[in-house]
Structure formats: C-alpha cells, structure tokens
C-alpha cells in the first residue's frame, strides 16, 4: 500500500464516500424508493440524486479553485448544504 501515498485528508474523504455508498445501498435494499420528479428537470431515484449532487459538487470546487483565491473550505460547506438540498428536494 506504500505506493498509494495515503494522506489523512484523502483517507477521510474516501471513508466518507464509502460510508455514504454503503448506507445508501442498505437503505435501498431495506426500502427501495421509486423514481420521482423534484426540483431537477428529470425523474430520479435517490442514487441518481446522490450522483448528481456529488458530481456537481466536484465541479463547484473546480470553479471555486479556478476563479477565487479563497479557502476551499467555504465551498465544501456550501456543497454539503447543496447535497442535502438535492437529496431531499431534487
């Protein structure tokens, strides 16, 4: 594993992603949710919304890094709110 050059922040990042994925899977196995239409212009399952939320968060971070010199933490905070919004109402 040495060649992977793990760092604490990236380990936390992947742990969080893994926990989200596993809990989403367990939730969907226990109680599958049907597709529905929310704020987004297409009908989605919770899994679709998670993907859309995460991918758009990644793009928001890139925009933030490319256009401003501010700390990326601000964007991360916003993206958590964004992710919750997309999951709940998207």
């Amino acid at each position: 594993m040495n060649w992977m050059y793990w760092t604490v922040p990236t380990a936390i990042f992947f742990a969080v992603i893994a926990v989200i994925l596993i809990s989403m899977t367990l939730w969907q196995v226990a109680a599958p949710s049907p597709e529905r239409r929310g704020l987004l212009p297409l009908s989605t399952t919770p899994g679709d919304r998670l993907f859309i939320g995460l991918l758009s968060s990644a793009y928001f971070h890139l925009l933030w890094l490319g256009l401003t010199d501010l700390h990326p933490g601000w964007m991360t905070a916003f993206c958590i709110l964004w992710l919750i919004t997309v999951m709940r109402w998207g």
Partner: peptide, 27 residues
C-alpha cells in the same frame, strides 16, 4: 483512481520525501 486522488494533494519528490499541499496543484 484513489491513488490519483492521493497524488493530487501532495508534492512527491521521492518515496520518503513528500508534502501535503492541499489543493495547490488544482489551482
């Protein structure tokens, strides 16, 4: 892919000398 993420936040000079640089490479 996980490895790429790890590499992208560090300045790796050799296997024993590396620094955490956060998002500098992306900037």
């Amino acid at each position: 892919l996980m490895t790429v993420v790890n590499y992208s936040v560090q300045d790796i000079l050799d296997p024993y000398t590396r620094f955490f640089v956060g998002t500098e490479w992306f900037r």
